[in-house]
């Protein structure tokens, strides 16, 4: 996993609640056996007017000019500003893969679907929970100012405007923060405890042998 360094990025607003993982990456694209290449189909049903199928050349498709991510002012955005319960629904890790592949490095919302939240952290995509009122302010700022950017400082756990006039603190699990900052892989960390896992497994087998028969 890549290290998450301090980020200063353009913000794109997605002003709807309960954006589900089916919307983030529709199921027809889950047939891939790879981890990459999902960005071109991010929010496919909203970004395009025709129905997308895997393998189809996106440059030949009909773009929906009304969808926010298609507007020129948001091209190159790295921070997605969203509403409550972002990423609810299925466990597909293709959702954070698609967001990252598209270029997003952080998503700010008042709350997230839990599996999506975890999946994002494991892929170096930072989900940031801010209060509803703070998210509301950011929505009005991003709508009001062309080229509105935010700075995400993971070390300090603060999201701020570039002029530092506004700054909002956020919480993150210390273990997750450590992994993100250092680009650490979970499996390697867990395997440091092989002996403990083996001891547990033996005790477990002794007390519930039917689980191992």
């Amino acid at each position: 996993m890549e290290k998450f360094l301090k980020l200063e990025g353009l913000v794109a607003p997605l002003d709807r609640a309960n954006v589900d993982t089916d919307a983030i990456i529709p199921k027809q694209f889950l047939k891939s056996i790879k981890r990459s290449g999902f960005g071109v189909n991010l929010f496919d049903a909203w970004r395009f007017k025709d129905v997308g199928e895997p393998g189809v050349d996106v440059s030949k498709r009909t773009v929906n000019p009304d969808f926010v991510l298609n507007q020129s002012r948001y091209q190159g955005a790295q921070i997605l500003l969203a509403r409550k319960n972002f990423g609810c629904g299925s466990s597909r890790e293709h959702a954070p893969w698609a967001l990252s592949d598209f270029g997003f490095k952080a998503v700010i919302a008042p709350s997230f679907g839990e599996i999506f939240f975890n999946n994002s952290l494991k892929n170096g995509l930072l989900p940031i929970v801010l209060r509803e009122s703070e998210v509301e302010q950011l929505f009005s700022d991003v709508n009001a100012f062309d080229g509105f950017k935010l700075i995400v400082n993971l070390e300090e756990q603060v999201v701020s405007t570039v002029d530092l006039a506004k700054a909002f603190a956020f919480d993150i699990d210390p273990f997750r923060k450590h992994c993100l900052l250092n680009g650490l892989d979970d499996i390697g960390l867990t395997l440091q405890h092989v002996d403990q896992i083996k001891q547990f497994e033996e005790r477990h087998r002794a007390s519930q042998p039917w689980l191992f028969s």
Partner: peptide, 16 residues
């Protein structure tokens, strides 16, 4: 409970 693909790999590799 449901898990993502990274966690599937984690469970395969560590049983945890």
């Amino acid at each position: 409970h449901g898990i993502g693909t990274s966690e599937v790999e984690h469970v395969l590799a560590t049983q945890c």
